[in-house]
Design a binder for these strands. Structure first.
Lengths: 233, 233
DNA sequence: TCAATAGTGTCTGTTAGACATTATGGA
DNA sequence: TCCATAATGTCTAACAGACACTATTGA
């Protein structure tokens, strides 16, 4: 629950609500991303959902708050917690706060649905109605994940410790929103020295079993050829 | 000046200070970026400098506050104002606030040194001591500018309406921190259809005069070849 | 004329994407 | 046996970077 207090600013007295920390927990599921929402009791027992949030505390940094909040909502620690942005617009937030800071948290595939009954995973294109500011936070988090994909190895945060190259490519395809060329994907991956094979193989349904790999970055490619003007309007 | 108020949280009473909005104004100068700092009176008349900042108001969005704050510090409107991140760590801020939101503002080259005497441009590798949180904001703003360079046409925000291709390449070199190949740069620029020539030419010192161009994006290149695993650790 | 900068044409090594082929298990 | 998926080799068009060259001004 938010802390509402009367604050004196100059000669006028305004109502101020403590800023909130909100967490967008994301995990891959069925070739889509899913987000964790909490059930909240709305007015007239109407069912409402919301991103996990809480009023900011002065006893810990916002990063610590976000990590704890994600852990509490999930039941275990996510593989990555990272700030998205502050949202200080006029959009509505469950707390009534004028300012909220959104965090993104990634959860490896195969995470069990959190027990406790009050939280559930929703595919991002099938989420129920949430407060407008939280919807903006979700959009911002998705944009941030996609933007950071080419700079940081965040795709591995959405996979268990060992995985097949097809699973890895699937994560990239989910995040990029387009299909990738298999041979090119593996060539680029090989050249980047990001993964190493294990001696395990996994058979799924028909077809040849796939070798399992693990994330094991070896060296930096400092090449960075050229200037890219792509994506510009 | 910050608003300090006594706020009741549960049974304890803590001192809370309103969050701040801080602006990192950047402009290119002499093949480097410069940042705008304001002179503030420190204790014992010691000279101190700080990024422009103010306590958050509930009467406008943080984006509006940042744009106004930048305009007031600069004397005119910057060409771009964009959020960097929220800083809610333990680092010291001039306000004493526990939370600050940093904004980045770009100013076209050739901006006059702001009159009024209390502000000045400093090359980013020669800045005086500022509060640790503001130093982190400056670093974050520089990182954000570089990260967005390949996604958005922000280089043009650091140039006047017309410019030579050598000036444009110089902006990219400042932001990327490395030299670029002239012919390749122009080829990629031509392929991206981002600029168009004017019929003006400018002669600077010796050498052949350079044609002036203006920013005029025509179409999107939706190509995006391949997956890039570069820059990963 | 020389120096300095603008702008362009050509060559070459690299690489993304297409295509084809082999490998290997399940139905 | 067929089918589905994994994994890999080869070819080609695109392109980044190097190099060389011309163009055009001021000193």
């Amino acid at each position: 629950m938010p802390n509402r207090t009367s604050v004196s600013v100059g000669r006028s007295s305004v109502r101020r609500t403590a800023p909130t920390v909100d967490v967008v927990l994301l995990t891959p599921h069925a070739r889509r991303l899913s987000v964790l929402l909490e059930r909240v009791e709305g007015a007239r027992s109407k069912e409402r959902w919301a991103l996990p949030w809480e009023a900011m505390r002065s006893t810990e940094t916002i990063e610590e708050s976000a990590a704890r909040l994600a852990r509490e909502a999930l039941g275990s620690s996510p593989s990555l917690v990272e700030q998205v942005a502050a949202y200080g617009d006029g959009r509505r937030h469950p707390s009534g706060a004028t300012l909220s800071v959104a965090f993104l948290a990634l959860v490896a595939a195969g995470a069990p649905a959190p027990v406790g009954g009050s939280t559930a995973w929703f595919a991002i294109d099938e989420i129920p109605a949430i407060a407008p500011r939280q919807k903006a936070m979700l959009d911002g988090a998705l944009h941030a994940v996609r933007a950071r994909l080419e700079q940081s190895p965040i795709a591995f945060r959405l996979l268990p410790a060992t995985f097949t190259l097809s699973e890895l490519q699937g994560i990239y395809e989910i995040l990029l929103g387009r299909r990738l060329h298999k041979a090119s994907f593996r060539r680029a991956l090989h050249a980047a020295w990001l993964v190493e094979p294990t001696d395990e193989w996994r058979s799924e349904g028909r077809g040849r079993p796939a070798q399992l790999f693990r994330y094991a970055p070896r060296k930096r490619r400092s090449s960075r050829r050229g200037v890219r003007f792509e994506g510009m309007e």
